[in-house]
Design a protein around this nucleic acid. Structure first.
Lengths: 241, 241, 241, 241
DNA sequence: AATGAATGAGCATTCATTCAT
DNA sequence: GATGAATGAATGCTCATTCAT
């Protein structure tokens, strides 16, 4: 017990904390936590696919129950309403990014960013339909559930933010508004999922990652001469109130 | 035919061609084209708002009829099914980008791109909810209707493509896969609509445009030394089948 | 037009005012008032029977629709929820008492009371199951609807109150707490409906009315000697706060 | 057997006989009678409250189990169906009147009746919601269960019948149809529960009892002259077939 | 004896679409 | 052309009851 491997332990912590984030928002009537976790997994597997194919509103509880060979009543012992299943699905999707693994080893900021982008984009590509689903159906969620998805997205962004700030501090990247550029990088990852109907005909994933990595690193490169706006003092950029 | 006023003609062409694109997909029972056009406009105005607020599936025909002070039966004389109204709405949204106005004046490619970005991003910001709607509800459309929205989006991209290709040809921009970078630029515009819940708290539109313009132009700048990958021969990048 | 008979007019007023009492509580989607009135009548006829037989909660909308040879959707164009049908039913039942006709002619208070009792009890007996229904299912209604049924019941009681007060003022009846005795009379009428499973085996309606009339008039008679409590000053009877 | 303390014995008899009346109608799977009796008591306590608040049909077995901190399965070991719990509840309510205590001491019939009324009305007032419940939900019971509640109500009435008959025989009360007048007295007691929403605002319980006692005794008083209908021969009153 | 997860028929309500007027 | 009442299949959710543990 005393000598658990840190990585295994962290993995465990992470899985647990995913449930911990979601469960308080979903009133389950079933007590046994391991059963609940199993059922959640089954629900996600079945529902994610259906939601992707037909959309949330066009997927019925009967569809989900049928695919799981379970009764509708059984589903409602684990969730209170249909939206809860969507929350489960989206939370699991967003959580994948927490599994990007140990942060890239120290070293050249550009290399660290490259690696982070590669991992992040690969996670997206591994399940593009889920990313699409998140864009399409997030609006269905309200209140705390909606907030949770937003929070989880922003938390994921933090890894990029850290690398960017470090790179800027070390003079490897040009100065920029880090929050915006962070989202640029994230967005260009999501783009693979959002526009795959077009991009997929042009390039494969590796080429896409290479292209976007070039684009991003080039955008961050410090330029000679007038490249970087001299007069720009970040703090003075007007914030919108 | 020869002496129509250019401006009137262009405006007319454009409006007509929007209808021309959409009408063959929508079986209206009403003959009078100007009446149809008027009703389409009313439908779009009412439905767009409702779809944005509640989503397509959660908006009823009664909602739309009620907002228009028209009968449900009347609506069904102009469209065949509910999805047609969505098509109308999305087509109108996508059409806004055709109105970017006269192409930027010849000159420095960077200046032309700057100007194009500025206009494009402003159009998005002028009606962010519609962009959001397009991302959320496009999947509802099937067949030709879905294809039309894709085509219209790609057509809009052409203006960026042209400027990029010109800039590369003239050595102002680094070499890159133009279709991808085009979509990057477009995507970072959509991002203002998609992530405004976050970005809107950080920057205002002008700052956003400035930041992204810097980002994009920096990404396109030719760099000293190894910045541009020497060994890269674009045509050899494997296409995905 | 100018010379409508008063009675006919009053009858008309009354029917209208019944609708006027109920309609503001029921959001109907149908405009045509005469159609609404007709449908309300049909709904009441079908639902009252079903509610009496099986109870409100055990009667389904399908039952009602089936009995009316109407679609469920049609019902929901006239009412917003199932409870509305119950309100309709109870309101109609309570309204029957407004039709007791012109108040008994002036004369001996005992005679007027006798006549009022006779009429009131006959109305109950004419549709005992509805009275039973009111006792059983009123609790289902909430808010304004519940209040309306209470108000209508109390309004009916007023006729008895007036006769009692008049009789007491004229020395024909002993002094008593009029509101309580009023409800006694009303209650002994309801009793015919509530306990008919027992009473119906013992007496017929006329005998019942005769018996109860004797009971009530005897109870109200002024007695010699100690019959009427001398020391009792009505105003001093403690009111419950 | 001979030397049990009277009080203990009576209490025991009564409790036992209540169970004896109900148990044959309820198939319990549990053998131990004292356990069954305890569970019945718990069920009644929990269910009565819930039935009063939400009605029988709107109270779920889960509600009851939850309130008792017992499993639904456990409940179904003591009763066969949900209706059994209602029977239990109503039987207990009706049984309260068996506990009116030793019959009023011999003496003046009016005094005995006064005392009986006082006790009976107090029992009702002590748990008015249960009386309301009986009126509302009795119809749910069918067959023997329904009959049992009717029988128990009529048995309670017997005490009043006896006093009335005695009073009439001794010339203290006027002649009347005893069964009807008995129910009048009972009904005016129930009225406190049924119309408390109105009466409770006018009088307190003691005033109510005083008022009704006056009303009833006055109704039973023999009057001078034509007060009592001479020509009336009770046996000839037509019975309803 | 007790538990509580599972079942699945049942129900209120919605809403796209039709069609008689 | 326009109206709006009617249709009825569809759907989310409930809950009495069962039964394996």
């Amino acid at each position: 017990m005393a000598k658990q491997r840190p990585s295994a332990r962290r993995g465990d912590d992470r899985r647990r904390s995913w449930l911990e984030r979601v469960r308080p928002l979903i009133a389950s009537q079933v007590g046994d936590p391991s059963l609940v976790e199993r059922r959640y997994g089954e629900l996600i597997a079945a529902a994610a696919r259906l939601f992707q194919e037909k959309g949330f509103d066009r997927t019925t509880i009967d569809d989900i129950a049928g695919r799981l060979n379970i009764s509708v009543g059984a589903i409602y012992r684990y969730v209170e309403r249909k939206e809860d299943i969507l929350l489960l699905t989206l939370a699991r999707t967003l959580w994948r990014f927490q599994k990007l693994g140990p942060p890239p080893p120290d070293g050249d900021p550009a290399q660290r960013l490259r690696e982070l982008i590669r991992r992040y984009y690969r996670v997206i590509a591994a399940d593009a339909p889920s990313t699409l689903l998140a864009y399409r159906e997030s609006y269905v969620l309200r209140g705390e559930a909606r907030q949770l998805t937003k929070d989880m997205e922003l938390e994921t962004n933090r890894a990029f933010e850290a690398v960017l700030r470090d790179g800027i501090a070390r003079g490897a990247f040009r100065r920029c508004r880090v929050e915006v550029v962070t989202y640029d990088i994230v967005m260009l990852g999501h783009m693979w999922a959002l526009k795959r109907w077009y991009l997929g005909r042009l390039v494969d994933l590796d080429a896409y990652i290479a292209e976007q990595t070039d684009f991003i690193l080039s955008a961050l490169s410090r330029r000679r001469g007038s490249g970087e706006r001299r007069d720009r003092s970040l703090p003075r950029i007007p914030r919108r109130v």
